[in-house]
Write a protein that binds this DNA or RNA. Sequence first.
RNA 1: AGGGGCGUAGCUCAGUGGUAGAGCAGCGGCCUUUUAAGCCGAAGGUCGUGGGUUCGAUCCCCACCGCCCCUACCA
Length: 549
Amino acid sequence: MRTRDAGGCSLLRDEARPYTRTPSLLSERILPLQFEPRDQFEQRQKKLEQIQALGYDPYPREFRWTDTPAALVEQYSQTPGAELETMNKEVRVAGRMVSFRLMGKAGFAHLQGAGKRIQIYVKKDVVGEPGFQLFHLLDLGDSIGVEGHLFRTKTNELSIWVEKIFFLSKALLPLPEKWHGLSDVEVRYRQRYLDLIANAESRQVFVTRARIIQELRRFFDARGYIEVETPMMHPIPGGAAARPFITHHNTLDIDLYLRIAPELYLKRLTVGGFDRVYEINRNFRNEGISTQHNPEFTMLEFYEAYSNYRDLMDMNEQMFRLLAENITGSTTVKYGDAELDFSKMQRLSMREAIGKYWPAGAGQAPTREKLAAPGGAQEATNRYNLWAKGAGAPYAAAKGPLQDGQWTGLLFETMAEDQLVQPTILYDFPTDISPLSKQKPEDPSLTERFEIYVAGMEVANGFSELNDPAEQERRFLKQIAQGGDEAPKQLDADYIRALCHGMPPTAGEGIGIDRLTMLLTDSPSIRDVIFFPLLRPESGESSSEAHRA
RNA sequence: AGGGGCGUAGCUCAGUGGUAGAGCAGCGGCCUUUUAAGCCGAAGGUCGUGGGUUCGAUCCCCACCGCCCCUACCA
């Protein structure tokens, strides 16, 4: 038998280190903190005492295993029982006990590890008296290790014939109910560890999330990008329009802002000669929470010198197709009731999209020329609103006076955004709502900017980066002058200074990793793809009790 | 922030204007190939919290708390 231990540690090691500590008094094992269900909590602490009294270390330090439950199930799922007998495959396996059927002097249990479960069979005359006493004292949720060989039961289930049993760790609190699993969404989010134990699909979502990030890294690494990390605490929040979280540094006695975007720092790196950079990390926005918004969310942002937004669009099409294929096995991905086809992306300019999705009942759809003319977007919005109010559809409500480009953006969001179910590249955003994007040479009212929409969600935002410091300064000052909650309050002079040192023509983009994960895992809520989504802290006795101690 | 929904045993859920039930988990007992194991027995609850109506409220009414959904906010 081989062990996985690279250090060549002998299998005898477990036996060579018997537990010698004098069994402690029951009272020593009792936790001062109490958790529900109280009776089971106390019961299990008593059992832990009894396990210790049998001579087992209540908190042993290691277990040398040869296979995980998942690996065995994977490897031997098709091997017939007779073959297993002749192989006499000896294994050492650790896992959490998730089912338990005791029948007098023998019993079955399932051990869960690496996301899969394997059955074990424990017989008193095989494991001996103390081993079987230990088996008796186990509860669902306990971690144990077993040593034995593979066989198949009467009902042909791959199982481990246990010769030796090792106690690894006690679950003082019970697992979620065994056949309904854990369905209370609040508990699933607050106590994600239980969700991960009880719900294989939930575990799979997070495994997939990790694979998505891995694939993205591979994609960019292969293209000569360098992964970097830039500050998350900013003296001046910038790079997006959002309200920031404020924090304070004591020694410097200054307020700092949790970043709302890494954009301005990544572009400083482009100035510094890092021509291809990406960063995958958190942004923080002090705004609402919804199925598509978590106050902290993960963004991939990348910058590529000497390219423009058209290059990025092509690259994105390729990247999304590749991701869908490598992650789900197909370019067609089920999301809710929709079948998302990532084999190609429709491309529409924002003004085209308004024309295309203009409701039939609202009269003549505005032409691109009409939308481009001064006042045209506002006029179209008014006509749309008139229809929407009659039809009971959402209408566009402007807070305060808007510029032409802002009307265009508002109209698009109101009427077209959630209709973009199939992967769509929406391009040519108004300059008025794109302060960091380069203008189109033939039409300064528009910028070389695009966003990718899938299932009505914005998942990416990219553009040819504005690298003219004079124009950038004008745009910043205009934003500040316009005011509003989300507008920057302060000019980032160092960013302008960096641009003055010369930034090559560059294209950059941000991709929302959480939303991308939602799409590729068919998750309806962003909370399903974030381990610990922000929730209101638990109130009431149990938590305050827990924090007091 | 507004609208809707939910909150009953540890878990999943029934239920009624007369102070509550099932299955699973837990506890005691029997059982050496079970898998939602089975059988016998005992236990488990401030019916989210606080007020009101009522002779009497878990149920009806009001407020609050928590979660979910929709809307709003959201580059």
